[in-house]
């Protein structure tokens, strides 16, 4: 049975799509057959970040409307084996996602022996976001270290606990994981950003990782590669840790302390 993971946040621009791409790639690299679905119908960003935008023929809405088969619409990733992308439609409205249609696609992916299905949620708490989270078994709440993002994450946690299929059926609740992105320890130390402990205290859910603010994230998305593939980058390593924790492994937190400049840098300035 495929495990369905929704990547959601409420607020826009916090890194949901970047996170969806990296978590899906990370799970696939760990040997789990994984599909990542773009629920942001009308905007369509995931295919750009995964670098498959020129190979999109059919999309999620085509499959829901039975205009294409799932096999025709799924795009095999060229960097990672066992990773498939189901892109969003750019020409439809979010209402094109029907609950029955989404369920049918998820069931079909399960029947194709996928281990994980990562659902990249659109921002907001409207129909598209509700559809992305409705069938979830686990949720990764992407939060930036600032108050409005934390508030929206709190709101989406309330929706997960009341409007999901698991909540409606009275099943075991969705497993919630906090992922803090764009974390800048220097700015936290200067009081410009919320600290890790503050965010965890406010949201009261366990964390699967902290992704530091890192130039490699933008470089990787411009190049159409999930940043987790960039093994030298701090963000890539932090995502690899988050995937390990998602799979139940223990990893110490990294990249959360202020980087102290070395002796020579302090003495001469500039790059060491």
């Amino acid at each position: 049975m495929a495990r369905i993971i929704v990547v959601t946040s409420g607020k826009g621009g916090v890194g949901k799509t970047t996170t969806s791409a990296s978590l899906a790639a990370g799970l696939a690299r760990r040997g789990h057959k994984t599909a990542v679905i773009d629920f942001d119908v009308g905007l369509r960003n995931l295919d750009l970040i995964m670098g498959c935008e020129r190979r999109v023929v059919y999309d999620f809405v085509n499959v829901i409307n039975a205009e294409a088969t799932l096999n025709q619409a799924l795009i095999r990733d060229k960097h990672v084996t066992d990773l498939y992308v189901l892109p969003a439609s750019q020409t439809r409205e979010k209402e094109a996602l029907t609950q029955d249609g989404v369920e049918r696609v998820l069931d079909e992916l399960a029947a194709m022996d996928f281990d994980y299905v990562v659902c990249d949620s659109p921002a907001g708490i409207e129909h598209g976001a509700r559809m992305a989270l409705y069938f979830a078994d686990e949720a990764v709440i992407v939060t930036n270290p600032e108050v409005s993002s934390v508030r929206d994450s709190d709101r989406i946690l309330g929706i997960l606990q009341s409007r999901s299929r698991r909540a409606e059926r009275g099943d075991e609740p969705i497993r919630e994981h906090l992922l803090i992105t764009r974390y800048n320890p220097t700015r936290v130390a200067e009081g410009q950003m919320l600290g890790l402990e503050d965010i965890i205290e406010l949201l009261a859910i366990p964390s699967i990782g902290v992704i530091p603010e890192c130039a490699s994230v933008l470089e990787a998305s411009n190049a159409g590669r999930p940043v987790i593939i960039e093994e030298q980058s701090t963000a890539g390593q932090a995502y690899a840790d988050a995937v390990a924790r998602l799979l139940g492994e223990e990893r110490p937190l990294r990249f959360i302390d202020v980087h102290k400049p070395g002796f020579f840098k302090r003495l001469f300035g500039g790059t060491p």
Partner: peptide
Amino acid sequence: ARPVRSGQ
């Protein structure tokens, strides 16, 4: 027993 979230 659970936290009460924003909007609840």
